[in-house]
Simulated assay, not measured.
Amino acid sequence: MTKLARAHFDSTACDAAGRHNFCGLQLQAARTIVISGAVLARRRWRRASDGLPVPFQLQILEPDYINMQFSAPRRQHGQCPVAQTSLEPRGAAVSLLVCATKSKTCPN
């Protein structure tokens, strides 16, 4: 398992853009936090046929990609999109979760 993880994270195979190894992704995330105040890390599952040591890649995104005013109609099977922000005790945002959830009380 260790060899497999090293093969994945020590190469650019872990980056969805194919530019950085894991340390480079950490640096990119840190720079994004300094510039934008937050960062999004997206896990992207890949097919086994893609030839990666581990079938997922990471993508680092600036928080500008999130529309905090987002509103969408109820999806099929009763799912509706939800955006939740986790706050620390002092009130600072520490994480954002965007997902589709089953709910009888959709915001729209």
Rank of each mutant, 00 (worst) to 15 (best):
R19D: 13
A100H: 09
H20Y: 10
C23W: 08
S95A: 14
D50I: 04
L96R: 01
Q57R: 05
Q79G: 01
R47E: 12
N21F: 04
L25H: 02
A72L: 13
I66P: 06
F22S: 08
H8P: 07
D64S: 15
D64C: 12
N21C: 08
T105W: 06
R44F: 05
V39S: 03
L97G: 07
A30P: 03
K104P: 09
A29V: 00
I66A: 05
G18I: 01
P81A: 13
D50F: 03
R74N: 13
P73V: 13
L61A: 10
D64L: 14
A72R: 15
I60K: 04
R44V: 15
H77N: 15
L87I: 07
W45E: 15
N108G: 11
F9Q: 04
H8Q: 15
C14V: 08
T85I: 14
F56W: 09
R31V: 11
A100N: 10
P89A: 07
W45M: 15
N21W: 02
S11D: 06
S103P: 02
V39L: 03
Q84R: 14
C80P: 02
D15V: 06
P55N: 11
L96S: 00
R44H: 11
H20C: 07
A92V: 04
H20P: 00
V39K: 03
V98A: 12
E88H: 00
L52A: 03
Q26M: 15
E88F: 02
T101V: 11
L52Y: 07
V94Q: 10
M1K: 02
L25M: 03
S103T: 13
L87E: 02
R75Y: 00
A5W: 10
T32H: 05
A7I: 01
L96G: 06
E88Q: 09
E88R: 12
Q59D: 14
R44P: 02
D50W: 01
S36G: 06
Q69E: 15
C80N: 06
I35F: 09
G91R: 02
V94Y: 00
L61N: 09
P89L: 03
H20V: 04
P73C: 14
D50R: 01
T12I: 14
A38N: 07
D10W: 03
P107G: 04
Q28M: 13
S86E: 09
A17Q: 13
L4A: 11
L58N: 01
G51D: 08
L52R: 05
A16K: 06
V54K: 05
A13E: 10
T85M: 12
M1N: 01
Q79C: 06
Q69V: 04
Q28P: 00
T105N: 12
R74A: 15
D50M: 06
G78S: 02
Q79H: 07
R43W: 03
I66D: 03
W45R: 15
V98M: 11
K3V: 10
A48Q: 07
P73S: 15
A13Q: 10
S71N: 14
R74P: 13
K102E: 13
R6Q: 12
V94L: 10
R42F: 00
P63A: 04
R6H: 07
R75W: 01
A83Q: 11
H8A: 05
L52I: 04
L58T: 04
